[in-house]
């Protein structure tokens, strides 16, 4: 499955992803109406600023293969969709015990204040590519399979290495 992969070194902390996420999860999916909407649309991606290192890091649900939140949920509100491999959350069954947020290793299960249920990344079911990834201006967020993501990194590294090699093709010394 494709996931939102993060390249923290490219993040500049503009929080476009957070806004895009909240807008995408509003009723009209449009910024200006989303602001006034009740319940307030909730973001599911978090850009954390690390003061000691003076850098921002975007953190979002990793859709873990062996997800502790799905194990702990007493009602089955959080479960794995066996077809898409996503970790999905059904607010209908959520009792708001926050055990999922307690065991989550990334701290990315938030709270829908009005409905008092958990909210988490659903990888934007209505879109091809999640809104946060589309919104990211620096490509710090990449929507890709794990192997694909490594492939992107490898290509970049290869490019850097290749710079030191003489490639012929008529280049004169």
């Amino acid at each position: 499955m494709k996931e939102v992969m993060i390249r923290p070194e490219l993040c500049m902390g503009c929080r476009s992803c957070e806004i895009a996420c909240a807008v995408e999860h509003s009723k009209k999916k449009e910024l200006f109406s989303a602001i006034r909407e009740k319940p307030t649309p909730k973001k599911r991606i978090y850009v954390e600023y690390i003061p000691e290192l003076a850098v921002p890091v975007p953190v979002t649900c990793r859709h873990c293969e062996d997800a502790p939140c799905t194990t702990i949920c007493p009602t089955g509100a959080i479960s794995r969709d066996e077809l898409t491999r996503k970790v999905i959350h059904d607010p209908e069954f959520c009792i708001g015990c926050w055990a999922c947020s307690m065991v989550c290793n990334y701290g990315v299960i938030g709270k829908e204040k009005e409905a008092r249920v958990a909210v988490k990344c659903d990888l934007c079911p209505d879109r091809e590519v999640p809104a946060c990834v589309v919104a990211c201006p620096t490509n710090a967020l990449v929507f890709a399979e794990v192997e694909e993501f490594s492939g992107i990194k490898r290509a970049k590294v290869a490019l850097k290495m290749a710079k030191g090699v003489q490639m012929g093709a008529g280049k004169a010394h």
């Binding site: 978090y46 954390e48 690390i50 890091v57 953190v59 947020s101 989550c104 290793n105 990334y106 701290g107 990315v108 299960i109 938030g110």
Partner: peptide
């Protein structure tokens, strides 16, 4: 959650 995210 925020604390955990910070740590990560």
């Amino acid at each position: 959650g925020k604390n955990i995210r910070r740590g990560k």
